[in-house]
Amino acid sequence: MSALLEVRDLHTHFFTRAGVVRAVEGVSFSLARGEILGLVGESGSGKSVTGFSLIGLVDPPGRIVSGSIRFDGQELVGLPQAAMRRLRGARIAMVFQDPAATLNPVLTIGQQMALAVRAHGRASEAAARDLAARTLTRVGIPDAAARLDAYPHEFSGGMRQRVAIATALLHGPELIVADEPTTALDVSIQAQILAEMKKLAKESGTALVWISHDLATVSSLADRVLVMYAGRIVESGGVSETLRAPRHPYTRGLLDSLPATARPGEKLNQIPGSTPSLLALPPGCPFAPRCPRADAACATDPPDVVTGGRLVRCHHPLAVAA
């Protein structure tokens, strides 16, 4: 099985006034067709920058410093903007957290979806509208043909996000990168969208990179999970094994931080301290200052420990519990 997406040792840095922010530092993973990958981390973990790197949308002062992103055998790092644009929207699509930012307020939904259709291929006005209506129906918008003439402000937040997802789906992309797509939505609407996404990925064989801070969402949607901390992957593996028996102390700490995993009213087993500044990371494991298992060894870069499809980057990984 050849991977659809193959990321090797990706480094994306931001060259700011205050210094170099190493937002993504040596990230590697691969993604098969039809697979859903959850990219989990807190703010500043580099999960969003990783996503933007995949779709070639890292804005200055940031840039991909080194590494390789191979999409269906084609190298994306260093690809000219024009070629990247052709790929984006057609074979790779993205969905952002704030749908209002992706939709043009002065065009009707139908107009902007038709524009998106024609940006990557010839289609008559009628054919474009028809495709738009069918795609909107697929993401669960009732009475889609009639709503093509509505403006974005006439839609609720959840509906707008569906439109954004439908626009991403127009060309039947092989890969969708979704950055916190349900974070701004209410629970009942989030559940609807998660259900639609899961169905779509299974039906169309689209691979999905789902970037989120929410472990529960990822656990109910993804096949595999990557846990990021301070720009690095600290643990990855099948979603249920990883979350049932995490091997990295950070993953353990994240799970223990969720009120849902504790008994009501009892103190949570919190991670002490706060996320480090990416400007002045000490050498070695970036999690060491907050880690209960840290010792002198953690001042050096932790090794990749690979066991049965799972990876953990730690000097003292937790034992795989029965």
């Binding site: 609720s156 959840g158 509906m159 629970v187 009942s188 609407i189 989030q190 559940a191 609807q192 998660l194 259900a195 899961k198 929410d214 472990l215 529960a216 969402t217 656990s219 109910s220 949607l221 099948g238 979603v239 249920s240 094994e241 979350l243 049932r244 799970l255 969720l258 849902a260 995993t261």
Partner: peptide, 21 residues
Amino acid sequence: SVPKLRLEADDLATFKPIAGE
């Protein structure tokens, strides 16, 4: 509607979202 932490591989997540807006 709240996504649950799914810890078993066979424990397929099923969403029973509230219909409508």
